[in-house]
Simulated scan of single mutants.
Amino acid sequence: MLVQYLFVFVCFLIDGAVESIFPVSFTMGHMYFVSCFGVCGLVLTIRKMDFVDAMILSVLSGMFYDFFYTDSFLVYTFIFSLLCIIVKAWTKHLGETLLESVVICISSLFAMQLITYGLMLVTGQTTVSFMVWITNRMFLTIVVNAVFVVILFFFANLRDSHLKKKELRIRKEERLFLYKATKARK
């Protein structure tokens, strides 16, 4: 469990590094992308967890994102919790191939950005039209993050194989201990 939390945390740190290298320009005529390495790492992680653990990780990730990246209060905690519910519903119908992982991450990313845009529009924090938002922000964000998901997919598989090897080693030790205990009784 700790490895999964650290994996998501490192993904959010990579987001910070990418955003410092490629700063966002909010001028109306320019296209820009928002690095969502952490969100994609969260999606790839929570799709393999049970619902309660996934919701806890989503809430903690949302609080971290609110505090360190957006300086808002519980907005992304709510969005990441809603994203967890959406991802857990979608993963029942998807496998774990690279293409399906890219689809679920990009769909989740679009849903998260759409919810954020909707909240900003409703609260009056933005006056950008939907078409300008799609062309200037979402197009490049989806393309760049699709590349990130491919890279992240391989790291997530490395993490999962490490966890499986660790669990298998623990199970072997348990069987060996059980075998010795039953042999000693006879």
Rank of each mutant, 00 (worst) to 15 (best):
G95R: 07
V10H: 10
I46N: 03
L94P: 03
Y32H: 13
F51I: 07
Q113H: 10
K92Q: 11
T91W: 00
V147C: 13
K92V: 11
E96I: 13
L13D: 01
V144P: 04
R137T: 15
L13I: 09
E100W: 06
T126L: 11
M131K: 09
V132S: 13
V103K: 08
V75M: 10
G124A: 07
Y32G: 06
V52H: 12
S81D: 02
T77L: 01
F9C: 09
R47H: 08
V147Q: 06
S129L: 07
V128A: 12
F64C: 07
M28F: 14
V143P: 04
C36T: 15
N136V: 09
S129A: 09
C105M: 02
S108Q: 04
S129H: 10
A111S: 12
F67M: 11
L57K: 04
I21E: 06
K48M: 08
G62E: 03
L82Y: 01
A146E: 05
R47C: 14
G29W: 10
I79C: 05
I142A: 06
L109V: 05
D53E: 12
P23F: 12
F68V: 11
G29L: 09
A111G: 05
I21F: 13
A89P: 08
R137N: 07
V10T: 11
M55L: 15
Q113R: 14
T123N: 13
S72D: 02
D50K: 13
I56Y: 08
I79H: 03
S20L: 07
T45W: 00
L109D: 09
S58C: 07
S35A: 15
D15T: 06
L121G: 05
T27R: 13
V144I: 14
L42K: 10
F26M: 09
L121E: 06
F26C: 01
L94Y: 12
I104V: 15
V149T: 13
M28I: 10
V132Q: 14
Y65R: 03
T97F: 02
D53S: 15
Q113A: 12
G16D: 14
A54K: 00
V43D: 02
T127C: 07
L42W: 07
I104C: 05
S108W: 02
Y32W: 12
M31Y: 05
L60A: 13
S101R: 05
M138P: 03
L82V: 03
F130W: 08
C36V: 14
M28K: 13
I104K: 01
L83F: 01
T127Y: 11
L42E: 03
T123R: 13
T70H: 10
G95Q: 06
T127L: 08
A146F: 08
G124Q: 00
F12A: 06
Y117W: 06
D15S: 09
V34P: 04
L140K: 08
C105D: 07
V87P: 00
D15W: 06
